[in-house]
């Protein structure tokens, strides 16, 4: 590695468990190569903490290439950082200045309880998905290609909605900790396609009901979620969910 070397002050949220109150702790990280990723920088800090006999900072991560949705925390007040359309694992240290102070916090939402430090429990999203985020499909012999024709605009819009990785940045950035962008995307990706029609009404009602039961807030239409989404998912998906929900309330028999 041949990058510039920088030093930073990190203020990190430390919390032992879900029951612990938690507090900010300050760490100095020195001589960081600016070609490192942000998570690699935290790996370096954690190695130093382990060497000193302290507990390393807990944070979620998996693929480290922005596609799995595992990582995510708030850096200086922005979910996944102030850079547009990236997850925290895609963030590089060259985006920061030498001597900068960074505040690292977990997603803050009642529905996302902190498990430890920067790691939160996002199983509320799994339960919303389980409530209706699936389709009934023919599982017998292989279906002929192109037997179901889908208009290009619908296919594109469904795909855009389906790029949601469920990281939770929408909830984290919303002032009401609302999950509407996530649920809107999940409802939309199926509502737009022929395969999603079987459970269409039942799906939106079940997913919204689950979302409400999990304790997420309501949408105030400030679109912070869209600005924070690493996949650039549009709030038009929330509007589609609103339409689907209204239609389902009128037409669904179940």
């Amino acid at each position: 590695m041949s990058g510039k070397r920088i030093s930073l002050t990190l203020k990190v949220w430390r919390q032992e468990s879900a029951k612990d109150a938690g507090k900010m702790a300050t760490y100095e990280v020195k001589d960081i190569n600016d070609e490192m990723s942000f998570l690699e920088m935290l790996d370096v800090l954690n190695e130093q903490l382990v060497t000193k006999g302290e507990r390393p900072i807990t944070f979620d991560h998996d693929c480290r290439e922005g596609i799995c949705g595992a990582c995510g925390f708030v850096i200086n007040g922005h979910a996944h950082s102030k850079e547009k359309e990236i997850t925290v694992c895609q963030l590089h240290m060259r985006k920061f200045q030498d001597g900068e102070t960074l505040v690292l916090e977990p997603w803050r939402a009642k529905a996302f309880p902190v498990l430890q430090d920067l790691m939160v429990d996002r199983s509320a999203f799994d339960r919303i998905q389980a409530a209706g985020g699936y389709t009934s499909v023919h599982t017998g012999s292989a279906v002929d290609a192109n037997s179901i024709l889908i208009p290009k605009v619908d296919a594109d819009a469904a795909f855009d909605a389906a790029t949601c990785i469920g990281c939770g940045a929408c909830v984290a950035s919303c002032k009401n900790a609302s999950a509407m962008l996530f649920v809107g995307a999940k409802v939309s990706q199926f509502a737009l396609l022929p395969q999603g029609q079987v459970e269409r009404e039942r799906r939106v009602k079940a997913m919204v009901e689950r979302m409400d039961a999990e304790g997420f807030g309501n949408c105030t239409n400030e679109y912070e979620c869209e600005a924070a989404c690493p996949k650039g998912i549009s709030v038009t998906n929330i509007a589609r969910m609103n339409r689907e929900f209204l239609k389902a309330a009128v037409t669904d028999q179940g």
Binding site: V74, G77, E105, R108, K110, N218, E222, Y223, E224
Partner: peptide, 24 residues
Amino acid sequence: ENRAARPTPYVMKKTFGESTLASR
């Protein structure tokens, strides 16, 4: 409901969507 949805506030929170004085 919105207040209850975030019992612990952020130490630092910034906006960069379409949040305005009126909307906040």
